[in-house]
Design a protein around this nucleic acid. Structure first.
Lengths: 150, 150
DNA sequence: TTGACTGCAAACGATTTGCAATTGC
DNA sequence: GCAATTGCAAATCGTTTGCAGTCAA
């Protein structure tokens, strides 16, 4: 599931990221590339705070506000998505293939999974009557095996 | 969809609520019953603040902290659920039949819908390997017709 | 060069908490 | 009567913002 990708894939994603920034009129700053790189390097849906701590290793002067500001900017441009959980802190991930989320009620870890059948399923008529759908995500809450075996 | 129920159904839900509180060892206070009544009376997924404003009509001295505290207590006891949206404020609803959520990115309104096919569908093997699932909700973001026709 | 971006510090808004008074059981 | 619950006020926590300096284009 939420495995990180190969070196090659990463570099490709970074190139696409730079292009996407340019296309969106966003400056390609050191902070932005490192934030995005970190998100694809360790795709475990970190909070802004966790991400900031990790980034300090590479960018010792980066501020938490910049992390927040950058994540918001990238989200506005569809490069990052914000995951709503039952926690107080938001979690973030680089946008890529359609997927869904498993959230452990104990350790709060978020794990991705695919469910192609549902992705292609036609939503009920009620939904079509309501308006236009932009995204569709399944969120399952439960207890992961690591937590329950303890 | 998110229509309120009949007078009879409401009274029945209130009775069940009182029983559930007693079973859980929770005192049946005026504030708690009014909060729950309000949630089933106007099931439009209010924020704690909205709920508090509405409650002031009936309980002029109820405090916002009590609303927060009660919602958390009821959530812990499975009587209320907290809906995560992209907003800063959480939204709440009385727990009842399985349903899913449509959220309008513009007006932020949350609408319930049913999708029985998905409810009965067997999740992929990855999910079973992960752990035990307690809840499964689909969240769709989009723009409702009211907002797009403006 | 110039406007976008950053870091700093201070502000903000939603939610939580300690405490004394109150209330349900 | 006693423990749980409330209202009040103050604290907390995640996140946002104003500003002056910095940096990518």
């Amino acid at each position: 599931m939420a495995t990180s990708c190969t070196q090659q894939q990463q570099e490709q994603m970074m190139e696409q990221f730079v292009t996407a920034c340019r296309d969106a009129g966003l400056k390609v700053t050191h902070q932005r590339t490192e934030i995005y790189r970190q998100l694809i390097n360790q795709p475990d849906h970190p909070t802004a705070e966790t991400l900031h701590k990790r980034l300090l290793a590479t960018l010792p002067t980066i501020s938490l506000d910049t992390v927040y500001r950058t994540l918001t900017t990238l989200e506005d441009n569809g490069l990052v998505s914000r995951i709503q959980t039952a926690e107080s802190q938001a979690r973030f991930e680089a946008v890529y293939a359609a997927h869904h989320h498993l959230i452990c009620s104990r350790c709060k870890r978020v794990v991705d999974f695919q469910w192609p059948v549902v992705d292609t399923l036609e939503p009920p008529a009620d939904v079509a009557d309501w308006g236009q759908i932009d995204s569709k995500t399944i969120v399952m809450y439960g207890v992961c095996n690591t937590c329950s075996n303890r």
